[in-house]
Design a protein around this nucleic acid. Structure first.
Lengths: 333, 333
DNA sequence: ATCATGAATGGTATGCGTACCATCGAGCAC
DNA sequence: GTGCTCGATGGTACGCATACCATTCATGAT
């Protein structure tokens, strides 16, 4: 493969001059520059970022780790970070962990081995190991989605606890009284926070607050919904902790012959506006994913470019509440 | 950041010995090895792949370019390639082009700059520029999804033309006579091939074969469907060229008060089994994405490891026809 | 003509890890 | 004891691009 020396020979200049043409074109005379550029084109020279990164001690690459790439939510994160990075001249190297904390560490290691300039991490758990690992290498890192109480690190997230209260209040305001929550994995802080918000909102009005913990998957949502919808005191509304759980719950309702929203209202988190459906069905809370990704990227660049060197920032962006077609007042049917 | 020399000093050995511990542990005496390993752990040494790649002239990284990351189809490709690569000790560096051919070239360039060992490309168009660009750098490349008539390159794909005929025949066998096709962008070979298969199947039975060309998006599917479903001779069945188009068409049908499958049957391509729905709705043709990704990765590794050096291979995998709930015999309602 | 100035270009060393060859000493055959 | 092999380890140079310093030469001031 062509090197800067090949180009230099072809253009009868020193390698340094070729490097200057690429990096500080103004410092080279127009004639020389043109000759070098012709040689670059003739030899199809493509710079070697390995050599460059080694010397410059930066690779102009950001690492991004998401846990579940099948979730449209993660896709929007990827798009947002990629765009923000590209706007600043950075490339994104990207990994997914299939929600496995060990795989997360492996992926982080792979990014560090490639000497990315910084890492944006949407972690599986909010335990401190992953952030410690990256920071132990003196590499800047920004965390997406989760509070990280044990780390001094920049975080960009929403107040999921508050959003859970709002969501629950909305359902209660519609007149529903028997409401159940279908949440995700108990080990995941988001699942707990959302359940807690639900419990608080219910308790504030003196209702019991049944919570099911499962997983953030349609299958789990389906099973949890089958369970609660066949209990003696069938809820008239469900609060689900993710779009996947909501989908599974809706499927269960369909099989049980329950119409949404006539017989059952469903509200959900993370009803990510993907392009897969024209018209969103679920009423619920949406996170400003694109904006979160942008802020996270800027936080990271602040650290990389040493524009900020203080203690970890905790940026909490407001969620957006959207009413769609999965909810109706109690007794509506 | 720690280097191999730091470790060498810490363990009182030469850098070469550290390198050997990492690459050929058996060639180092157990005592020395253990001392070095302790130093590696103590200093939190993480190898620098920039230096290693420079010297070894390989990076153990594969590049993957997909066009539309919002499509579950692409996600399955990413997962498949990532898995197959990981099973062989390779990392995947991944880019998406948002279906922009210029962005495709930029992304390819970024991968080449990072000196990936090979590239898997799911291209926007089947024009030869992208493959020529990569091959011009003497880098192996495998193409996913599309035939590339102008390139001598390994390709992994399905016979989409044949699948279109099968799909159309299925609808005709159900008794439908007025059938319309909603396809994608005329510039995309898949859109053309699927439309051609449809036209041939219709012509073989002497029916007219109306084809709409739009885009591979729900919005376009919605608009195309609104058009054909409001024409004087409203079709009783639609063949759509992608899952996105089918979703848009279904939405249009819903707005027009048409029930699926009672009033309108829909069959589609690429009803990718994602994890977003428990129970697929659309009858249609599914591509064996995971297998395609595996084969593509193996093709690429064959080239990288020089296990194969012949002319471009063209692997055509069979599609899978799945009957779900979007189709019914004509006159069923 | 002389010298300072600065633009343009070149030479050398470096970043990190490894290929390659050299060295050293132990063990062995005779 | 001599010569040999082989395992273990070290030294040097290199891959590619660039930071830094050196050099060259033209220009302008005096």
């Amino acid at each position: 493969m062509t090197t800067i020396r090949d180009v230099a020979n072809h253009a009868s200049v020193a390698p340094m001059t070729v490097s200057r043409v690429l990096n500080q074109p103004d410092s080279v005379s127009p004639e020389t520059r043109q000759r070098v550029e012709e040689s670059i084109a003739a030899l199809k020279y493509v710079p070697n970022m390995l050599g460059q990164g080694l010397r410059k001690k930066r690779t102009m690459a950001l690492g991004l780790i998401v846990s579940d790439i099948t979730n449209p939510f993660a896709i929007q994160q990827i798009r947002g970070v990629t765009r923000a990075a590209r706007d600043n001249g950075y490339t994104v190297i990207f990994g997914h962990t299939e929600s496995d904390p060990e795989e997360e560490l492996k992926q982080l290691r792979a990014l560090i081995e490639r000497r990315v300039d910084g890492i944006i991490l949407s972690p599986v758990y909010n335990t401190p190991e992953s952030v410690n690992f990256v920071q132990g290498q003196k590499l800047p890192v920004t965390v997406l989605d989760y509070p990280m109480p044990e780390n001094d690190v920049d975080v960009v997230r929403c107040d999921t606890h508050l959003a859970a209260r709002e969501l629950t209040d909305y359902v209660l305001d519609l007149g529903h009284r028997r409401v159940a929550m279908l949440s995700g994995d108990l080990a995941i802080v988001t699942a707990r926070e959302r359940a807690e918000g639900f419990e608080e909102a219910m308790a504030a009005r003196g209702y019991s607050a049944p919570v099911e913990y499962g997983h953030f998957t349609p299958e789990s949502g389906y099973e949890m919904a089958l369970g609660v919808l066949q209990s003696e005191s069938r809820p008239t509304a469900l609060v689900t902790a993710s779009n996947f759980i909501a989908l599974g719950a809706a499927e269960a309702a369909r099989e049980l012959g329950l119409s949404i929203p006539e017989d059952l209202s469903i509200v959900t988190f993370d009803n990510a506006r993907t392009d897969t459906v024209l018209d969103p069905f679920f009423t619920g809370v949406v996170q400003p994913i694109a904006e979160m990704a942008t802020v996270a990227t800027h936080f990271l660049l602040d650290r990389i470019l040493q524009r900020y060197g203080g203690t970890g920032r905790d940026e909490i962006l407001p969620t957006i509440f959207e009413v769609h077609r999965s909810t109706a007042p109690y007794g509506h049917s």
